[in-house]
Write a protein that binds this DNA or RNA. Structure first.
Lengths: 112, 112
DNA sequence: TAGCAATATGATAAAGTTATCATATGCCTA
DNA sequence: TAGGCATATGATAACTTTATCATATTGCTA
């Protein structure tokens, strides 16, 4: 029995949205940008990540509407789109604090 | 320059938490359980997914604190832990509505 | 306008995740 | 307690995601 198209599309978008969050590189970038907007180079310095790694993942975050870019001469400043992202991240803290131990032993999702 | 352990652990837990959401099987299960608690068999029937696929993913959801189990004779009833999960899912709708098109063309995350 | 700094992009190997199949366990009821 | 239904678990092949390397592009500034 096929699902309604609308339902399927919504599920798929949810999934994409969460995937954007479910990677350490992107999460660290989000945490940094929560404090203030930064350029690619600044993000590289603060995280120690390779430049292309940062660029690739910023591109992903931009596609997903998580960050906005301001061109500033030779630099590009990336800022969090605070409207929904910050409230969401904050909501998690509560849950994560509560389920720390279990999350660390899921088995399906790898904890490295 | 090594990161503080505490910071790292938090990021990692965030990541695990979001991964739990970022899969279609689990999302469909969550959407179903949002309406009412169900047994494994009922979830299989409603989704058309294989039994072991459902079981594996329920196990993941339980580890992550998303669902609670009530043994009921031969059956096990799975219920959403509504305290944080439902508010989070609801928060997304807003963001997803706004960024539909972009999410569909991310490039880093695959849209299948 | 040449050269450099900042950022982006493409291809790919390695790592991680998923569904599936086969099988195991647990709990009823006859 | 035997048999069957409901659910769980383990191993694995197929698929997806990731970081990395090499290279391209863009915009300053001398």
């Amino acid at each position: 029995m096929p699902k309604l198209q609308q339902v399927y599309v919504m599920d798929n978008l949810h999934r994409l949205f969460f995937k954007a969050f479910s990677n350490q590189t992107r999460l660290e970038i989000i945490q940094l940008l929560k404090k203030k907007p930064l350029t690619v180079t600044e993000i590289c310095e603060k995280t120690g990540f390779e430049q292309s790694r940062v660029s690739h993942n910023l591109r992903c975050l931009e596609h997903c509407g998580f960050v906005k870019i301001t061109q500033n001469g030779n630099f590009r400043e990336y800022a969090l789109d605070g409207e929904t992202i910050i409230p969401i991240v904050d909501l998690f803290e509560k849950h994560i604090q509560k389920y720390k131990e279990r999350l660390e032993n899921c088995g399906v999702i790898k904890d490295d």
